[in-house]
Amino acid sequence: MTASLSDGRSTRDRLRAVLGQACAEVGLDATGAELVRFVNNAVFRLARHPVVVRIATTPALRHRADTVVNAAQLLADYGVPAVELMPDVDQPLHIGDHLATFWQEVPDTGDEPTAVELADLLRQMHEIPVEDASLPEWNPIDDLRRRIRDAAEWDLDDVEFLLRRCDDLEARLAEVRYELPRGVVHGDAHLGNLITTPGGTVLCDFDTTCVGPREWDLVPIAVGQLRFHHTVNKHRILADAYGFDVTQWDGFPVLREVRELKLTAAVLPVARSNPNIRSELRRRLRSVRVGDTFTRWVPYR
């Protein structure tokens, strides 16, 4: 069954209704809210309050809302620069089948964050004692399976292929030996998850924050350098600033495959309702299927 453009519009209308109800429950006005991102979460910037609202759109990943709240509280406790939850609101807020979280909006200077800033923030995060973290253990394959199984009306052959790839990578991950200590890891550490404010750069997006191998937080920039067209070698800058080059470690090829599978399958649950991402999803699927490690990808929009 082929999805129409109206699927995307109707989904956005439903999300705005959820936003309106969520805001009403905490005493906020959703009038004029701007949808600033719509992939696995719908992210709205309120027009009448300095607040950003994130609504989980993927049923299989709604369990992440508790992780996001716990991660934000942990970073605040340890003084790691990060976006902060709206105070005095019990979070996450349940609105029917949806979960919403409310965040204090931070002033964005518009300056592009740097790999040096990312390295500094990761070092601070990685030094948090793991025994103080009420966070899940790193399990990227479980996360991937949830997304893939939640694919809405996508080609069944693609879905079955991706699930087989998960099985293969899970077995190979079990053999990886890590060089760095376990730590509190962001889970999706790339420059798009930083915001530059007048007071400094802060972390955001804690959906996959967990306790696991610190190497995982160095993989996104390395894979981004290989897969996306970066004129500046951000991986080299990050490796030098952090003090570890993940690409020279013998476990990198396996973690690269996991990251690339995540970059491909992440949007499957919303591919039907977000027509803007379908052509890029198909490009990535072709690359993964044939083992093509050279084709350049473009970011999902």
Rank of each mutant, 00 (worst) to 15 (best):
E131S: 07
P136Q: 01
R62K: 13
A189Y: 04
L144M: 11
C23W: 05
G243W: 04
P59D: 14
A133T: 01
L15T: 02
T31S: 07
R149W: 13
L74G: 13
N233F: 04
R272V: 15
P213R: 06
L173W: 00
Y78M: 00
A241D: 09
P50S: 06
V270E: 12
V270Y: 10
T58V: 09
P253K: 11
F244Y: 14
W154G: 12
D108P: 05
N233I: 02
D157P: 14
G291T: 02
F38A: 10
V52P: 00
P213G: 15
W297Q: 00
P198L: 04
N274R: 12
T209C: 14
I195V: 11
V258G: 07
L121T: 02
V176W: 01
D205S: 03
V89I: 13
C204F: 07
D90G: 01
A241K: 15
E137T: 12
A76Y: 15
G192T: 01
S10W: 13
A33M: 08
V106T: 11
V270G: 09
E175Q: 06
G32W: 13
G110A: 03
D250M: 05
W249F: 12
K234M: 04
D132E: 15
S273H: 13
P113R: 06
P59L: 09
Q73A: 15
A17M: 12
A115H: 03
A24R: 05
L46I: 08
V18P: 00
W103Q: 08
V211C: 12
P253T: 09
A71P: 07
H235E: 02
P220C: 10
V130T: 14
D142E: 08
R12T: 10
R9L: 11
C210R: 08
A24H: 02
L238C: 10
V89W: 01
Q104C: 10
L226Y: 06
R12D: 15
A71V: 06
H190G: 00
L144I: 10
F161E: 12
V69M: 15
N70L: 15
R278F: 15
S287G: 11
D168E: 15
P81Q: 01
